[in-house]
Nucleic acid binder design. Sequence first.
DNA 1: TAAGCTTGTGGGAGCGCTCCCAATTCTTGC
DNA 2: GCAAGAATTGGGAGCGCTCCCACAAGCTTA
Lengths: 349, 349
Amino acid sequence: MGLNPKLTLEDIARMSGVSRSTVSRVINQQPNVSEPVRQRVMDVIHQTGFHPNLAARSLASQRSYIIGLVIPRSVQNLFSDPYIPLLTQGIAQTCNQNNHTLALFLFNTEEDEYKLLPRIRRPGLVDGLIALSTHADDELLTQLRQGDIPYVITGRPMNLPDASYVDVDNLYGAFLAVRHLIHIGYRHIGTITGPLKTTTGMDRLEGYKKALFESFIEYDPRLIVEGDFTQSGGYYAALKILPHQPDAIFIASDYMVLGAIQAFQENGLTVPDDIAVVGFDDLPISSQMSPSLTTIRQPIRPLGAKLVETLLDIIDNGSQPPRRVIFGTELVIRESCGAHQKMVFQGDG
Amino acid sequence: MGLNPKLTLEDIARMSGVSRSTVSRVINQQPNVSEPVRQRVMDVIHQTGFHPNLAARSLASQRSYIIGLVIPRSVQNLFSDPYIPLLTQGIAQTCNQNNHTLALFLFNTEEDEYKLLPRIRRPGLVDGLIALSTHADDELLTQLRQGDIPYVITGRPMNLPDASYVDVDNLYGAFLAVRHLIHIGYRHIGTITGPLKTTTGMDRLEGYKKALFESFIEYDPRLIVEGDFTQSGGYYAALKILPHQPDAIFIASDYMVLGAIQAFQENGLTVPDDIAVVGFDDLPISSQMSPSLTTIRQPIRPLGAKLVETLLDIIDNGSQPPRRVIFGTELVIRESCGAHQKMVFQGDG
DNA sequence: TAAGCTTGTGGGAGCGCTCCCAATTCTTGC
DNA sequence: GCAAGAATTGGGAGCGCTCCCACAAGCTTA
């Protein structure tokens, strides 16, 4: 198993008494190699610990087997939200399973946008890109579209009519959350939204409105406060909404809930007795916190997996027609909504 | 600025009336190119939007300009701790600044350890690796040592005598934290440690002990509870320590503080009135939570930057002698230690 | 038994760079 | 005005693969 330093295909070929081409066929699991030859070559490969040189393979095959994950500057502050690491995990894992390498491109400064993007688009670096969707006016996505690199986007993008994306059903998820609160008996329901420049933020707000509308509850604009998916954003949004005395609140991300609950506590309010809360995401902490959080579960890791699979499909088969995958969401009832205390009612369609 | 698809050095050479070699020299900013020629070539490059093919460059130069970040399975659960994303940011940013690409290798399953590592070590993929240090018996690091790939480790590793690493002064940081608590007047000081299989966990415990020793305070083993750097680990460790009624507690990571504070609240204890808390890390949330957290600040992003710089140094100049960089830490006094209420004393050396 | 398949194998060409050395041009000193 | 040297420039070789085509066997089929 020793790693002889500079072994090449040619070396392995010589050592196993065949040609370079045959060794290549064995390594790439191509057909048209007889079983005894395949065995012999495999033995030599294992004995020598040989691995083909990736740069050479990339050059010859015009594929690098590298997938890039692009995290725009506008979601940088969100990097502390467990959502992104979780998604990254799903993506990384699926890359590994498909024998691809994951390259991470974080845009920190505005300068990066000019410097990094051309670098990413260099030929011979990545086969394709996964981009986190951002607000409408993000330069990044429009630049992507102009390039010739295959890409998918997490979350429905705003102004890219024929982009491929993977998303969750934000509208219906939010709808489930708010309908649940209504079923329990709350009527003065507020919401802390995501950034309303993003489709995610907008869709979840739509779901909120739809649930109220369906139950003929007039909605009070003062009970709708825009957040930004950060913890401190949740905190300040909560402070802003409290004077209008909601009896329940739908918060568009679990991470914002953390900040909001702190605001409630400082104002002497207990969850769920004084104010009921339903979140969105179902992060690992959400079940551990106290009170445990009623929330909308979205399948974050599977989403990451699907992103990779979709991208590989596009790389192999072209970007047309655009792929669109929407994952379902699920209401997870725990303590923070007060369902258990307030009434017998439990399940939800 | 249009991206003509398949431009090569040769094309640029023809278009600017020079040879391939000269274009290469211009692109790589090598000397021995006359100013007018350089100008002419640069103009053509800008007009055409040409970027050299990275796979070809890697093959010819035997450098990929890719750096791998290896996150072992044993720190996977920590991915929700903002520490790792923050570190990753520092690393990514510095990679960009040095025109390197960051590849992310997350080990999710045990299987990955066997499958992924050989892939990482393939020639032509990465120039070097940054590995998060883990507990002593982690297979990963010893495997790294056997390889021929340059690497650095975050945090002093346990059984790698001549590995290069970048770390913070955990011992002195913890010492500062506990000495501060002693200065304020606390005497029954507990600690929730990190995993004691890691040097980080051990060093911070040593610092705790050293501060007590220096003040002739006998330490009570029941006040030392091992945590695991996770939020829920902090919660359970706190529950375990509370019966022994510490008046102050040093918690070895801010993220564990989050869990611990929840345990305190459930037991009706207020911070800092009933129990004083000092953390470690100084995460972004630490200043925002309520009460704001007194903690030991470690320079996470600079640490990431130094990791990259050290690795590049090793790649260029060889791994001997091993590089060792230790960053200093700093006590940040806020509300959770009760210093402001309890006494006039403020500063701390 | 010859002609036509199918299956297995080998080697040339080429992917697009870098690096080295040879060739050319420009300086400079005496 | 010319040799010696420095500064430029060009082109060949090669990095280690993949891909294509040619060729060698073995196997049908008439």
